[in-house]
């Protein structure tokens, strides 16, 4: 029996390695080759290793566009995630603590965002009317609107596990509603807040579709848009394309190594109700 477990394990490893790991090895190897070698798209090790040269070439391409892209993506991600945490926790708190018809209505309303795809062209029209089209803060607010449903879902479920006695003790001590939330409740939400931060950061950092629509223009590029644009520019320089893919793969890998548990908690929440 024990031996069978080893055999099944070894076979699964072999299959998982071929299907899931080899593509990433392919990226790493080709990111270190010269342009001519990488054009053959094979698995041979580079004859000439040029990791640093490819790295500097990618970073310098189109007047350091990649650095600008990393800057913009970071601003959008940090801004949107910060707002999502505060806004989402406030909504989840009130919805959970104050059950009423109005609350159920708001909850249902916010959850529609999880299912219905955004109407893109009318959104552009709205953004133009309020002068937020093609701006980073407009993009931040868009990501807040689109990420709200999932964030509220997580917070509302977690707040249900915090005893109301805590709020009441603070209220008896004379705390005002905002003080109760910021001094008593918010610190207790730390585990779910870490989950929200990690899961939403990855989603927003990896988002390609919405910046493509709402953030056109060279000065507004994001990391995913740059990767997409480089595809046409690097047709004859596959090594640089692969280096670029490698660069966008490393941030989620680091996050995954450090926050594995929180990611799993976030992705499976709401999955098992019974």
């Amino acid at each position: 029996m024990k031996r069978r477990q080893y055999v099944i394990g070894a076979v699964s490893f072999a299959v998982a390695f071929v299907i899931f790991v080899i593509p990433f090895i392919f990226v790493v190897i080709n990111a270190m080759k010269s342009a001519a070698e990488s054009a053959r798209l094979d698995f041979r090790l580079p004859q000439k290793w040029q990791f640093w040269q490819n790295l500097t070439d990618v970073v310098q391409a189109r007047d350091y566009m990649l650095l600008l892209a990393y800057f913009n993506s970071t601003v959008i991600t940090v801004g949107a995630v910060t707002l999502l945490v505060i806004f989402g926790a406030l909504v989840g708190y009130v919805l959970q603590r104050r059950p009423s018809r109005f609350s159920s209505f708001v909850y249902a309303f916010v959850l529609t965002g999880l299912m219905i795809p955004p109407a893109v062209v009318p959104t552009i029209w709205v953004l133009q009317e309020i002068n937020l089209f093609k701006t980073l803060h407009g993009m931040i607010l868009i990501q807040v609107a689109y990420g709200l449903g999932f964030t509220v879902l997580l917070y509302r479920a977690f707040i249900a596990s915090i005893p109301r006695d805590l709020d009441e003790a603070a209220i008896v001590d004379g705390a005002r509603p905002l003080q109760v939330f910021f001094r008593v409740i918010l610190p207790l939400l730390e585990p779910v807040t870490v989950t929200v931060i990690v899961v939403q950061s990855i989603a927003i950092f990896n988002d390609f579709t919405h910046p493509l629509y709402y953030l056109p223009g060279r000065e507004n590029v994001t990391v995913q848009l740059t990767l997409y644009n480089f595809q046409s520019q690097f047709v004859s320089q596959m090594n640089l394309l692969f280096m670029n893919i490698l660069l966008v793969t490393i941030p989620p890998l680091i996050v995954f190594i450090f926050f594995n548990r929180q990611i799993v908690a976030g992705m499976t929440s709401g999955a098992v109700k019974g």
Binding site: V91, R97, V120, V126, V144
Partner: peptide, 25 residues
């Protein structure tokens, strides 16, 4: 002690940038 206006910032962003475009569509 759980005032509805706590939800105002989130709901207004969601309403303007998600619900309005959806209805306008």
């Amino acid at each position: 002690h759980y005032p509805y206006w706590f939800m105002l910032p989130a709901i207004s962003v969601f309403f303007v940038l998600f619900i309005v475009p959806t209805l306008a569509s």
